[in-house]
């Protein structure tokens, strides 16, 4: 039990996928202009990531390793992820056209979100079992969603700020991401 708790704390806070591992910056910058879109993106990514972690574990352990094909790992993971994203896209388009519209191009781009490929690969690297992989994927996605929501709310606030002209837009977003990363360094050392 404690083991799972630490995996969650570790992925959500201490080794946050965006702020500490610096993965998945594309949607982090792209979909953080509006809080509602960010929350939707976080949910979509959580769904994709958890599913992708589990699926790639299964593919890895039941298709690749028995056939001695681990060199196909990256390729097959990408195929799996692309399929899951496609599926998610169709699902969201059907169930929530508004969310589909707000996420726009970033929804199919979850495929190229390096966090989504990164987590399955990290799972392999750290020899996680199936449950661990699922939890690791889920925790990573929660960490991603949490930071995305925080960041989006901050950017909404910054809309009204008297930011000097050269720093408006992406520039101040980068500065903010840096300071957010600085703040999250406070969690360092909590979990080995």
């Amino acid at each position: 039990m404690e083991h799972y708790f630490f995996i969650l704390i570790g992925t959500v806070l201490v080794n946050n996928i965006v702020l500490v591992k610096v993965l998945g910056l594309c949607p982090f910058m792209g979909v953080s202009k509006k809080l509602s879109a960010a929350v939707g993106m976080g949910a979509a990514t959580a769904f994709v990531l958890t599913l992708a972690s589990g699926m790639s574990y299964l593919v890895d352990h039941h298709l690749l390793i028995p056939n001695d094909l681990s060199y196909l790992r990256t390729l097959s993971f990408i195929v799996v992820i692309a399929a899951i994203v496609q599926f998610t896209e169709m699902f969201i388009r059907k169930s929530s056209p508004m969310l589909y519209q707000t996420l726009g191009i970033y929804l199919p781009l979850i495929t190229t979100n390096c966090a989504v490929l990164g987590i399955p690969l990290l799972n392999v690297q750290e020899n996680h079992n199936f449950i661990d992989s699922l939890l690791f994927g889920f925790g990573g996605a929660v960490g991603f969603g949490l930071v995305l929501a925080l960041f989006a709310a901050m950017r909404e606030r910054l809309e009204g700020a008297a930011i000097p002209a050269p720093f408006r837009g992406a520039a101040i977003a980068m500065v903010t991401a840096g300071l957010l990363s600085l703040a999250f360094m406070g969690f360092a050392g909590l979990v080995k």
């Binding site: 925080l150 901050m154 909404e156 606030r157 600085l182 406070g186």
Partner: peptide, 11 residues
């Protein structure tokens, strides 16, 4: 650090 982390959550 705890203040900075929570600052981020203020909005």
């Amino acid at each position: 650090f705890s203040i900075l982390i929570m600052n981020a959550a203020v909005p």
